Simulated assay, not measured.
Amino acid sequence: MTARTTQHPGPERERTSPAGPHVLYVRFHPTARSGSLDPDTYTRLLGLLAEFTPVVQALPPDTAIADVRGALRYFGRDAAGLAALVRIRALARHDTDCTIGVAANPLLARVAAGTTGRPGAIRTVPDDPAAVAGFLARKPAGVLHGVGPATARTLSAYGLDSVGRIAAAPPATLQRILGASAGRRVHERARGIDPTSVTPQAPPRSLSTEHPFRQDELDPDRRRRALLMLACRLGDALRTEGRLARALTLTVRYADGSTTTRSRTLAEPTGHTPALTAAAYALHDALALQRARVRGVSLRAEKITGDDSAGHQLTFDEQATRARILEPVIDRLNSRWPGAVRPATLAGPDAAAESGRPRSA
């Protein structure tokens, strides 16, 4: 007589997924014909996802997370089948392709979308502890949401350079290295556990502007020049509308069509061009793109608010004070004669081509 062992789901499995794969992490990719993904198209794509589920969390400028748990029975498809349907409709209606990760929680879906290997692919992580462990084992620590470059370097210094090694490490060891809260959180994520849920959220009020290069750009000085131009556009638009930005997002598009997006919360709400420029430079420099072939860059001013309730930190920097005093004068000159006053770095034969207004979303 053969003994049969009945396995009951432990707490890890319960926290991983109560309903199998049901989270879609969708990254939109404009086709070569459509060019770039503008905010209006992104809003329409969010509406497309809303046709399947009301639980859609916007992650501008080109990503969204959807919980389709309640749509599986209605459409008679599993989550991967719904992902394929989303991709078909995005291509047909908006000329936009999708890379989609399908999993039991946002963490695994995000990692799956980042490892599909090519735009337009759909990758599903089965809702099985062994499959999840195998999927994550060889991934670098940096794929875990919340593990930035500094944390990854700290873990690597202790030989914990892969998700599999982090998952195998005793929780107490990670807590000694990273601290109690961070160590516990990283250990759970290395095992594919993510208790967060998809929160319905519309894209926040924002302004964006972009600059495509005529050819794949390797020169960091030319990329910084483009960022200065974009920061000038955003600053002018914010001040014209009487608005301030609380955060700035940089998106870099590469020759292979992939993108990198980084955001920074500003020290204070601002529409001051030098402050926006400094933040854009810092985001760019942190990416260390020495050998990257960059096809275009874009800046997005986010968490926009009115300027009537914001304060400004006083400073003893006389040059910064003079720049703030002169800025309204320059704005009035440029409103009458567009482009009359601009940084000397931006002067040149391409000045006309570099003019443009940011898009509102």
Rank of each mutant, 00 (worst) to 15 (best):
252 V>Y: 00
108 L>P: 05
276 L>N: 05
208 S>V: 05
80 A>Y: 08
181 S>L: 06
273 T>E: 09
351 A>I: 13
152 A>K: 04
58 A>K: 08
210 E>P: 04
320 A>H: 14
113 A>L: 12
225 R>T: 01
198 V>M: 10
184 R>G: 11
201 Q>A: 14
323 A>S: 15
306 G>K: 05
137 A>G: 08
204 P>R: 14
256 D>E: 13
284 H>I: 01
258 S>G: 12
253 R>G: 00
227 L>D: 01
318 E>D: 13
124 T>F: 09
84 A>Y: 11
185 R>G: 00
107 L>F: 09
278 A>H: 13
201 Q>R: 14
256 D>R: 03
68 V>P: 03
1 M>R: 15
232 C>S: 14
347 A>H: 14
142 G>A: 15
174 L>S: 01
343 P>C: 05
57 Q>S: 12
13 R>Y: 07
135 F>T: 08
137 A>F: 01
115 T>Q: 11
334 N>D: 13
32 A>R: 15
159 G>N: 02
79 A>V: 05
115 T>M: 09
252 V>G: 00
153 R>M: 05
168 A>H: 00
229 M>C: 14
58 A>V: 08
178 L>H: 00
349 P>C: 11
73 R>W: 12
232 C>N: 11
264 R>E: 02
176 R>Q: 02
304 I>C: 04
252 V>W: 00
361 A>Y: 04
27 R>V: 05
57 Q>F: 09
353 A>N: 14
47 G>L: 02
214 R>E: 07
1 M>T: 15
